[in-house]
Design a protein around this nucleic acid. Structure first.
Lengths: 143, 143
DNA sequence: ATCCTTGCAAAGTGTTTGCATCGAG
DNA sequence: CTCGATGCAAACACTTTGCAAGGAT
């Protein structure tokens, strides 16, 4: 199991391997799809494992940092809106190295996405695409 | 101005056109990028317009439903995670209505993205695509 | 006159934190 | 023995709601 990876990460960070962290780790990896902290807590509770929500909330960022889980639905914690008149859509490329942002728009990409949505019976309202990598300048610099 | 569209929407719904709703409408459309309820409230306050936060929170869903604004970067109000082991890359469709998540993968989409990156001189490392909209079930329910 | 809307403050959610205690190293 | 970790409950930040008073139709 990749539990070792987690323990290794904890050790490197000078953090401790505790029973609770182990239990949380197992619960996370027993799941197949997405989960939120609450679901995780309930899942453990049903199995008779008693770990506080606080520990779950404190452990998830560790799993995140260690790369063992990832966050989906980059939820800002509050609602954001924009009005729909006169703004056109674009996507982003984010340079990991210099932090630069390239905005781009591709008609072909939009069309392809729509086709994929149709296949799933999904009605697209909006989307966010972020490609992370290295921009032209930084790529040259790295060589 | 599209203020008429809003008034029309209110009328159809049997709701009233009030001074507060008008002010909120104007503030929303005076903005160019994204905003959150708090920013909106502060913006109005600075102009000496006094409308309660509650009214803002009650008016935004109306603007949303009327299609005059859209919601960005927010589907649910809590964190979601998934673990990264043994799972291959996939993207997500998020249902705005029921919170459901559809995972999908498209080879064609990946290829197209790579092509776009190449054109920009960008070296892609990873990406996240989230399409927000209405899933099949919710689409039917809305009709 | 009716019934929707407002502002306020209280109640809800989801998440974070202070503190006393516990336990891994 | 030493610090980090835990559980609990209080604190937080954002959003929703109950209620009495006000206002649009």
């Amino acid at each position: 199991m990749e539990e070792k990876a987690f323990k290794k990460y904890l050790k490197e960070k000078g953090l401790k391997s505790t029973k609770e962290r182990e239990l949380i780790f197992k619960e996370v990896f027993s799941r197949h799809g997405h989960f939120d902290p609450e679901e995780l807590h309930m899942g453990m509770r049903k199995k008779g494992l008693k770990v506080s929500k606080a520990s779950i909330y404190r452990t998830l960022p560790l799993l995140l940092e260690s790369g063992l889980i990832k966050q989906v639905e980059m939820t800002e914690k509050h609602a954001h809106y924009e009005h729909t008149l006169g703004r056109n859509h674009h996507d982003h490329m984010l340079c990991i190295s210099c932090g630069g942002v390239i905005e781009f728009y591709s008609e072909a990409l939009e069309r392809l996405q729509n086709r994929i949505c149709k296949k799933e019976g999904f009605e697209s309202v909006t989307h966010t695409l972020e490609i992370k990598g290295y921009c032209g300048k930084c790529r040259k610099r790295r060589k």
